[in-house]
């Protein structure tokens, strides 16, 4: 009982944001419901970003109807390297990453072969809403598979590592890099077993990493150190994240980006209810930073000022 109370006080002192507080004080207040469709459908987000000049992975095709599924193989013949995503999926559910075709099968990034039938079934599941909120009918997006930057080669097991930055009122608040593991099957979601590592906002250098709520120094599959790695193009990433505020108007959002070897930073998706694990990855609470932004936001007029504010105020050490 007392231990719980002490821990409560400890969390409050560290400024840890809880789920209730995130929902009541940030999501409900700063994310008007009418704006949510902009990020709930990844296709809409893609179009918006594209129009605003923010780079996104190229979309090879969209499947909206059951009868279009059969034709998918022709499309995939041109692009054997691809990712399938439900347009309204959440938490990385339903995303499958493929690297090529072989003997009438598709090769998943894990090396598993997937038959044409199985792929069609997966697409059909996506269309019938198996991964969408409330089970409403959905679309399947087939898009460019990111060739990630060589920096990450040593740091991830298959899959595509991504960078998430929480943005509050246009100011980047906290960031982490998510590294897929063998367990997460190439996906970059922490609850699926990916590693999360906090990032120093000033320098883009990774801090300590967390795997399943435990602090780790090395990648469990590759054995390489995940701490102290400098994320390339950090300026660019912060700049894009900050600009996403104007893109959607959502006051509190998570921006998920990848670093492509050739194309540089690409926005994967925006999230109106970003998870709270980023605090564990950074070993820091969000609340003090959010409060600081709320106090200072009046004086921050453009993107560069907001990024500068984040780099100076949220530096580690």
């Amino acid at each position: 009982m007392f231990a719980a109370l002490r821990r409560w006080r400890g969390l409050a002192q560290a400024g840890v944001l809880g789920l209730n507080a995130r929902n009541a004080r940030y999501n409900l207040v700063f994310n008007p419901r009418r704006l949510l469709p902009l990020v709930d459908d990844k296709l809409t987000t893609k179009r918006l970003a594209h129009a605003a000049g923010i780079a996104v992975p190229e979309c090879y095709g969209v499947i909206e109807e059951e009868h279009e599924i059969k034709a998918v193989h022709e499309l995939l013949a041109e692009h054997p390297d691809f990712v399938i995503k439900p347009a309204q999926g959440s938490g990385g559910d339903g995303i499958q990453v493929f690297t090529g075709a072989a003997k009438g099968h598709y090769r998943k990034i894990s090396g598993d072969l997937v038959s044409h039938d199985a792929l069609e079934h997966h697409l059909s599941n996506i269309l019938s809403g198996m991964y969408s909120l409330g089970g409403q009918p959905d679309k399947a997006i087939i898009e460019y598979r990111v060739r990630f930057d060589p920096v990450f080669e040593r740091l991830s097991y298959q899959g595509v590592p991504d960078v998430r930055i929480i943005v509050f009122l246009g100011v980047p608040v906290m960031a982490m890099v998510r590294l897929p593991t063998r367990q997460s099957d190439g996906k970059a979601n922490l609850h699926q077993g990916a590693i999360g590592s906090g990032i120093d906002m000033a320098t883009g250098r990774t801090l300590r990493a967390v795997w399943h709520n435990e602090v780790v120094e090395d990648h469990p599959d590759t054995g390489n150190a995940v701490t102290g790695v400098v994320i390339p193009a950090w300026d660019k990433l912060l700049d894009i994240a900050a600009r996403c505020y104007e893109l959607t108007g959502l006051g509190y959002q998570g921006v998920d980006m990848v670093l492509d070897r050739d194309l540089g930073p690409l926005v994967l998706e925006l999230n109106a209810r970003p998870g709270l694990n980023i605090q564990i990855a950074n070993q820091a609470g969000l609340l003090p930073r959010l409060d600081a932004i709320e106090r200072a936001v009046e004086g921050l007029t453009d993107v560069s000022q907001r990024v500068a504010f984040a780099r100076s105020r949220f530096a580690v050490g």
């Binding site: 409560w8 400890g10 840890v16 809880g18 209730n20 004080r25 564990i280 070993q283």
Partner: peptide
Amino acid sequence: GRYSGYRLLELKRFKALAGGR
């Protein structure tokens, strides 16, 4: 509906952050 305190299970989830400072 306006309760914004921690959920009890979050005390365990964010355990690593409680004594961090």
